[in-house]
Write a protein that binds this DNA or RNA. Sequence first.
RNA 1: GCCCUGGUAGCUCAGGGGAUAGAGCGACGGCCUCCUAAGCCGUAGGUCGCAGGUUCGAAUCCUGCCCGGGGCACCA
Length: 561
Amino acid sequence: MKQHINQLVTQALERLAAGGSLTLPADLTVQIERTRTREHGDFASNAAMILAKPAGMKPRDLAAQIVEQLPTSEQVARVEIAGPGFINFFLTPAAYQALVPLIIESGAAYGRSDQYRDTPVMVEFVSANPTGPLHIGHGRGAAVGDCLCRLLAANGYPVTREFYYNDAGQQINNLALSVQARARGVTPDDPDWPADGYRGEYISDVARAYMQGESVHAEDRDISAAADAEDLEAIRAFAVAYLRREQDADLKAFAVHFDNYYLESSLYDDGRVEQTVAQLIASGHTYEQDDALWLRTTDFGDDKDRVMRKSDGSYTYFLPDVAYHVYKWQRGFRRVINEQGADHHSTITRVRAGLQALDIGIPEHWPEYVLHQMVTVMRSGEEVKISKRAGSYVTLRDLIDEVGCDATRYFLVARKSDSQLTFDIDLAKSQSNDNPVYYIQYAHARICSVFRQLAERELAYDQTRGLAAVERLDSAEEQTLLVSLSRYPEVIEAAANTLEPHLLAYYLRDLAGEFHVYYNSQQFLVDDASLRDARLSLASAVRQVLGNGLELLGVSAPESM
RNA sequence: GCCCUGGUAGCUCAGGGGAUAGAGCGACGGCCUCCUAAGCCGUAGGUCGCAGGUUCGAAUCCUGCCCGGGGCACCA
């Protein structure tokens, strides 16, 4: 639709230019926008306002000339000039009614496209270290990242989902020491407790399982416990596998899956870290100072240089990060999106600086980042504190168990990710009209219910008859619904292009609301068979779009509630 | 101090160059002999943090300031 209007305006402008009354700038891009209210039609163009000044004309006069040159179109009922010089297009009801058969025929494919099928993209998200259960911050990353993957895939991108974690560093060492302490019966309040130990109760569970000789199976590893409290290496390996297994279970319960788990340790095993160091030194952007090896990241926009190799010979975390991203590039991903917490934003400049220093043709702004701000959890009007070290802890699993996967996912993805989010447990749990998740799902269930009611009344839905009568869908409520249905593909594309899944959450809320209004204003099961079937066809199309959209959010679309 | 982010209705948040600034919740008042009331309708509620600037037009872009969050390690 939008594209069609664009063509009409472009043709009109070209005619004016050919007639000599207008000169078009070479870089002209005509804007066709959805209008905010129906009084302004369906689409509006600002072409006259933009071109008025160079043409030396008043916007409204120029608009009149453009309108005069517009080709006629079956889809356009009328055109108006309004306000400071907008050209408003009013589409015919038929243009919208034609969507009903289109949506029903397209089914799950409605709103999807394959336009980016030639651009493999990797999305790295969650990437939690195996030092504890996933908390609600990881949950936000999981929900946003997973939804992004679904949106990208819906636009045709071949998507690879990757989870990267450190299985060997100092944090893991603290983990192993903590488990060992618990295995020996030492508690966090003991003087013997490791300095940076993890104090959470789950550490006791790991220690107990280890001492009982349990075997664990995680997505990316299997291990049996040695049950020896003195074998720190065995404890380390067991604890990592145990917590990975827990995280897998959390992610599974959250309907999130990954194609690949990538270990930081493998970057060392494969020699990629050493190789990256050698290349960085060769590139001339490094220097030695105070027995450490520095990378001159200030050459690439950082505000101070960074240490790559510490004076004790070990590497800082950012070096494997660079090596890891080089490998992503080498694997052929020309689009890479990293979804992570905003508390890690300082890595962006450094990783990009490292990649630029290598001078291997990686674009300046590669990879892309989607950062999410912190989540505050509220219960009974009070903030629930999250602190892994202290042990009081809102885990993702607790949330899923308490409020359900659907509501948790919806709430975590329904906000723009760069604003802080308040997760109200009471609201998310409430099975009432307070809760937007149920509001959307209820619209879907209601439509299913209408079709069940149809059968109970021993009526049958004749789709052919319904689609032949779509011109009877002419009420204000029906037109409103049809406009929203026409917007769905634009929303899917925009949400993927801007990497903003919340756009979809809002859209579905609006669509559901419009359906509820319709439901209350008109009867579906009327005696007039063709009218009945036409309305059922529209309901069916709405159900399809609600279902398609919920699928992209990873939220279920129940048939009854 | 520097960098990133946010500041829009009592609360939670959309809108991020266009035409009278939106939604939900909360408040108040209505609607089930009728396809699920997990719904609908109505009323009240705003100096879009402040001040300049750019523009035909600024909640939206730029600059400065104020306030909240995060980050500025030879931690990750």
